[in-house]
Amino acid sequence: MDSLELKTLILEELNNIAPEIEPHEVPDDQDMRDALELDSMDFLNLVTAVSKRTQAAIPEADYPKVLTVNGMVEYLLNVLN
């Protein structure tokens, strides 16, 4: 998967969890929890869902690296390739 596909996938999963957020409101480089008012359970659910779809393990210790959309895309690119 390339970065565009990964971003689309992340936004799809985010939309399942928090459908009130429009995709265009999601900033690329801000902590999603702050910018989108996700709580820790939302964030945990997002990471779990993305991890499941991509088959990429994201251990808890790496959560700080995936707090932004771009961070998550980059992390997945590294793990998957």
Binding site: N15, N16, A18, P19, E20, E37, L38, D39, M41, D42
Partner: peptide, 15 residues
């Protein structure tokens, strides 16, 4: 489902 979920989250907050 998404309409209802989105509505509830907007009105009540995620917690």
């Amino acid at each position: 489902r998404k309409t209802l979920l989105g509505h509830a989250r907007k009105r009540l907050g995620p917690a």
